[in-house]
Simulated assay, not measured.
Amino acid sequence: MPETLKLELPLGDAIGEGTSGVVSPVLHSADGGRYAAKRLKCTSPKEALDLEVRLLRLCSAECSDIVRYAFACETATDYVLIFEACDVDLWDALTGAWSRGKASSMERQAWSLQLCRAVNHCHHLRVLHRDVNPWNALLVLEGSESSSARLGDFGLAVRMESSELRGWEIPGAAPLDDSAIGSLYSAPELGDVYGFPADVFSLGMTLLAIWGSADLGEEELINLVEGAKQAACSSSSSSHMGSLGKGAPCGFRSILADALAYQAAARPTAASLRDCVEAASRTTLCQVQALFKTHLHQQLTPVVLGAVLDSLGSPKESNEEMVSVAFRKLGTSGRMDVDSFLKWVFQEGSLVPA
């Protein structure tokens, strides 16, 4: 239970509204950290508000891919949840509503894997989120060239006591509403008989938006998502995947087709989806080493490195980005040692386009 305190929180103007409340930045904190406050709607049942707090605290405790819980309290007028501040929601990042422009393919790979890990962690704890979408995926900027994704807004989350739920209302939890049921990102079965596969469907739709936005404007992206949802509801999702973007790793089309299957039982688990996304975003060290040996180049130039990466069959946009970053970090007079490149790629955890 949150503490009951009489205090005045230094909150800024509202920056968003979630399923269960309004979010504002915390203007000052004793530890100097960046926090946001969600003033939970008092119209929601008290036990539902307590559940949101408990599940966010539980899920974020050991997973950095979920918005980190700080504390919760009751003031004289509000029920307040304090958590890690983020910089922008995923939808704004995908549709160009932030100053950095289009995200790189490497960032999209990272976001995809981070969100898969977050949903899998929730499911491991038997927590069903029920509201995975690009507005509840939040980005934290890490310098001028990268960002990481967090899963947030646990206002509709529930703890699964059995393998499936039925209906819109679950005892002790916030009820589903028309906006949740009618969302383009919600599973066809949500609100009827549903379980963990419903989150997998929503995650798959979110990944579709991540990769489709590489080539599409906002209106075209909405059309892509609408088409995929309509296809899923008519049990023909595999034929309506549309454009996944020129930077999409090889294998993503089949991964998303499986996640968006009409039959819930046909979808992969969140753990399987995470593994497939990771495999599609990486090649193994031995594969890359063997490829470099066949080229017999001990010193790389940008042209040679680009040719080697192109021969992997990976997207040209990803290859060009890899070449640029590698030579900026490691190159000397337009040349770079093969061993230095491989060490940087695999020891620093950089993604090699697959």
Rank of each mutant, 00 (worst) to 15 (best):
R108G: 15
C73R: 05
L90M: 04
A85P: 03
A61Y: 04
G33D: 08
S144C: 09
S64V: 03
D78N: 03
D87P: 05
S112N: 12
L40Y: 08
E145I: 04
V132G: 02
R126K: 12
I66Q: 00
W135L: 10
R34S: 06
A85I: 00
V158H: 03
H123I: 03
Q114M: 04
S112H: 04
G152Q: 02
S20K: 10
R150N: 04
P134L: 06
P134S: 07
T95P: 15
T19Y: 08
L94A: 13
E74V: 07
A85M: 02
E17S: 11
H124P: 07
S64P: 13
S64N: 12
T43Q: 11
A118P: 04
G33W: 02
R130M: 10
G101L: 03
A149E: 14
T95K: 15
E142Q: 12
S147T: 03
S24A: 02
E52S: 11
G96P: 14
V53A: 08
S162I: 05
T19Q: 07
D92R: 15
V67L: 09
D92F: 13
R117P: 00
L90I: 04
E145P: 02
N133D: 14
A72G: 14
C63V: 00
N120C: 12
E62V: 11
V88M: 15
R39K: 12
A137M: 06
W98D: 15
V26N: 09
L139M: 06
R39C: 04
R130I: 11
R108C: 15
R57I: 05
C63S: 09
S24E: 00
S148A: 10
V26Y: 11
S148H: 08
R108Y: 13
L49C: 04
S148G: 03
L156V: 05
G152T: 02
T19N: 09
T77P: 13
H28V: 07
S147E: 01
E47T: 13
L139V: 09
E62P: 05
R117Y: 00
E74S: 06
L27Y: 06
E74N: 07
R57L: 05
D89M: 12
S99V: 11
L27M: 08
W135N: 10
W91N: 07
D31N: 11
L51A: 14
A70C: 10
L113D: 11
A70D: 15
Q114R: 07
S147I: 06
W98T: 12
S104M: 09
L125C: 08
G96N: 05
L94V: 15
E107Q: 13
